[in-house]
Amino acid sequence: MPKILEINSASVGYNEDIVLKDVNLEIFDNDFIGVIGPNGGGKTTLLKLLLGELKPSKGKVTYHSILPNETLFGYLPQSVSIDKKFPITVLEVVLSGLMSKKGVAGRYTSMDKKLALDLLSRIGIANLKGRTIGELSGGQLQRVFLSRALVSHPRLLILDEPNTYVDNKFEKELYELLKELNREMAIVMVSHDLGTITSHVKTIACVNRNLHYHPSNSITSEQLAAYDCPIQIIAHGPVPHTVLGKHN
């Protein structure tokens, strides 16, 4: 599998506070990495480091074999701060995900629109294309933002707690969709929910100031303790893995 990017002993801090220290991570095509860790442990900071929005104070991030005219990232932030009364339609929001390809003076062709509409069908919200965002529920809006992240067909999809605002029905569909998308792209997903992580991802990164990469999707409490990665446990019905107690 070709390598997309690697982080080499990178440290990141806001002012003097070190949030991530000596972090190493490699991401390959078709990876599906679940990022877990306590609040304030640096999960979102890790994503920003991947995205290039934050520069490491030490170490480096290297991007590999990026093809010309390829979109590297699709990013769905944990919360998108927007004005719900803004006069913009669902289709326009989704098309905005193509701007980096189109350039600042970009215009859309009928091909672009077809691409966006096909994607909306796939996400199950084709009927909403002409609605303004103010007419949507929280879950529908989340799907619109997911579509915006996907429309450029990124090589790496980065999701920050995608299950925060979605309804139970879509949560199930979302993981089905991610599984399908994972055949076409690598995915990095932050989640609080260990049950979710262990049943859907391929590998796990525990982030708590340091990063411990765990090359499988089953993880035991001993391993988590060894990684110094206390996380919030949410018990689910038939979780296929050990439900873990709290440890210090």
């Binding site: 995205l51 929005e53 990232f73 990013y75 932030p77 998108v80 701060s81 927007i82 004005d83 803004f86 913009i88 326009e92 929001v93 905005s96 995900g97 701007m99 980096s100 189109k102 600042v104 003076a105 970009g106 215009r107 859309y108 915006r148």
Partner: peptide
């Protein structure tokens, strides 16, 4: 006329517009 899309998107969601390389 030239930058209509960029204007619309930076007004709507400046954080995302930045990731799309809109100045």
């Amino acid at each position: 006329l030239l930058f209509y899309r960029s204007i619309l998107y930076l007004a709507f969601d400046p954080d995302f517009a930045k990731t799309q390389r809109i100045p």
